[in-house]
């Protein structure tokens, strides 16, 4: 086993262990997601037709907000106890380690949101084809959200209350994923071809995987000065 896989595996294991020991922290964004979804029928009325129409957009906005909520702690705790410095001084490439960290973060925040889609579809009365594509879109889109959001988290790492600030910095940058993610469902529901949109979402994800860890690593080095 190479040194990098050893380090990456240990980091992944450590992250999951810590998340497992603080389960409530992990659950908070998910519960938030469910509550936000519940608010819309209460605010807009429960006409089945309206709900089915707005559901994909609402699900995307709620997913976006709940992922932002969980990003505040991505690097902040490591910064407080000094383990971020140790991460920076590791002989392994920093962007790769950051990527591992973001991936574990997505596993516990993004993936559950993707998996909750059928439940959402049930609550909002979405037609089958819509929620299938919603789920696919979320699966391709939420990792991009984690990756881009991690940059905001890294930039604000030394600041005491960074939650709103991260949202302010990162929400404008989330717009492409939001547009194509919800556009995918609208297009699919209209019976139009969706391969192009899926390709764009995939391309956005590739771009994020390539660039976001670099930017994050750079931002972390700056923030730790």
């Amino acid at each position: 086993m190479s040194r990098f896989t050893l380090a990456a595996g240990a980091l992944c294991q450590r992250e999951l262990l810590l998340l497992w020991r603080h389960k409530t922290n992990v659950l908070q964004p998910l519960i938030f997601y469910l509550i936000v979804m519940t608010l819309f029928p209460l605010a807009l009325g429960h006409s089945a037709k309206l709900l089915a129409r707005i559901a994909p957009g609402v699900a995307w906005v709620a997913a976006l907000l709940s992922m932002l909520l969980s990003l505040e702690n991505l690097f902040a705790k490591d910064h407080q106890d000094g383990s971020l410095e140790i991460l920076l001084l590791s002989p392994q490439p920093l962007p790769a380690l950051v990527l591992v960290k973001i991936f574990t973060h997505w596993l516990v925040t993004g993936l559950p949101i993707v998996l909750l889609t059928p439940l959402m579809a049930l609550l909002m009365g979405m037609p089958d084809v819509s929620w299938h594509y919603l789920m696919l879109g979320l699966l391709l889109g939420t990792p991009s959200l984690s990756l881009v959001g991690a940059i905001g988290s890294a930039l604000t790492v030394g600041l005491s209350s960074s939650g709103v600030l991260i949202a302010l910095l990162m929400l404008p940058l989330y717009i492409p994923v939001l547009i194509f993610g919800s556009g995918l469902v609208v297009t699919a529901a209209a019976g139009l071809p969706v391969a192009g949109i899926l390709a764009i979402l995939g391309a956005l994800l590739c771009l994020c995987i390539a660039l976001a860890p670099l930017a994050c690593g750079f931002a972390l080095r700056v923030a730790c000065q």
Binding site: P172, P176, A219
Partner: peptide
Amino acid sequence: RTAAKASAILTLVGFVDIPIIHFSV
């Protein structure tokens, strides 16, 4: 110094994202 570097990074990230945002909009 940190503030200056952090805003420089955010500017670069924004610059990469602006054409994508424009295209998607």
